[in-house]
């Protein structure tokens, strides 16, 4: 658990960070995923650029019909944000339950998305909430739907040289909630489900059941077609094939998907 030799720089502006990443450095945000991977030598970047010295990457504010969340905003701030609680309760739920207090005080929303761990809580809730990310690279800024960001294990559609600068969450009036299951009190999520219920119907997404966070399309379709919750739960795992692991079998994870979809739906409905 000793990282290999590397070059460390701390950027003081987004442009400086982008230049470093474009030159091959790996961006370091809260370090809650990258650092363990480096210590295990699963990641061995020759250079890292620390984003913690860039003030404009931190903070939560309203911007017209969206909430703009700086990529370096820590989970604890998101969990405590009344703005996010009011408009995207499931994101606040997820942020408040990630790892341990220590992790929530260091880990960031941008880091969680960029790392793209298939068991992360944050990406699934942002997908269900219809959020987008702003990425900045050598060729300028672009907007990516959260749903289009993560492609598979630890892999995103970010271009070389791009970093996530902001997450934009719609200021919706949806009722929403996130429910997850983990083995120990402080542990990685086995399966998590985020549900948003609004005038435009139900949106739901899950983590821990594929190589990336996934929309629960069959579940949404039943409910949006006027079907019952029981029918929706019966179809929740349609098209989804979780991986068996030490944390459970395929059948168990499919079952949990239903249990958690019901729980999240129930909590969202009661809000």
């Amino acid at each position: 658990m000793i990282p290999s030799t590397l070059e460390y720089t701390k950027a003081s502006s987004i442009d400086e960070a982008v230049a470093a990443v474009a030159a091959g450095a790996v961006p370091l945000s809260g370090g809650q995923s990258l650092m363990p991977m480096m210590r295990l030598r699963l990641a061995a970047p020759h250079a890292i650029v620390d984003l913690s010295g860039i003030p404009e990457l931190v903070g939560i504010c309203e911007d017209e019909d969206e909430i703009a969340v700086g990529a370096m905003t820590i989970h604890r701030e998101i969990a405590a944000s009344e703005l996010i609680r009011a408009h995207a309760g499931l994101v606040a739920d997820a942020a408040g339950g990630i790892g341990s207090p220590q992790v929530r005080n260091r880990g960031t929303i941008g880091g969680s998305l960029g790392h793209a761990d298939p068991h992360s809580d944050m990406p699934a809730t942002l997908i269900a909430a219809g959020a987008s990310v702003i990425a900045k690279g050598p060729n300028g800024e672009r907007r990516i739907l959260a749903e289009d960001l993560i492609t598979t294990y630890l892999t995103t559609t970010l271009e070389p040289g791009e970093i996530i600068t902001q997450v934009r969450i719609p200021k919706s009036d949806d009722h929403s909630a996130y429910a997850k299951f983990h083995r120990r009190a402080i542990d990685w999520t086995v399966v998590g489900v985020g549900v948003c219920i609004g005038d435009n119907g139900v949106r739901a997404a899950a983590t821990g059941v594929a190589d990336k966070p996934v929309r629960l399309s069959a579940f949404e379709a039943v409910l949006n077609g006027g079907g019952s919750l029981d029918d929706a739960i019966a179809k929740v795992a349609e098209g989804i094939e979780p991986h068996a692991g030490l944390d459970g079998s395929v059948e168990y994870k499919k079952h949990l998907l239903g249990v958690l979809a019901r729980k999240a739906h129930g909590e969202a409905s009661s809000r």
Partner: peptide
């Protein structure tokens, strides 16, 4: 929680605290 698991081919599947579950105070 705890179990040290080997695959049939001799690989150790639980070498870190991500896979090997030691209870914390909260448990």
């Amino acid at each position: 929680f705890e179990e040290t698991v080997y695959a049939e081919d001799g690989q150790m599947l639980t070498p870190t605290f991500v896979e090997y579950l030691v209870p914390s105070a909260a448990d």
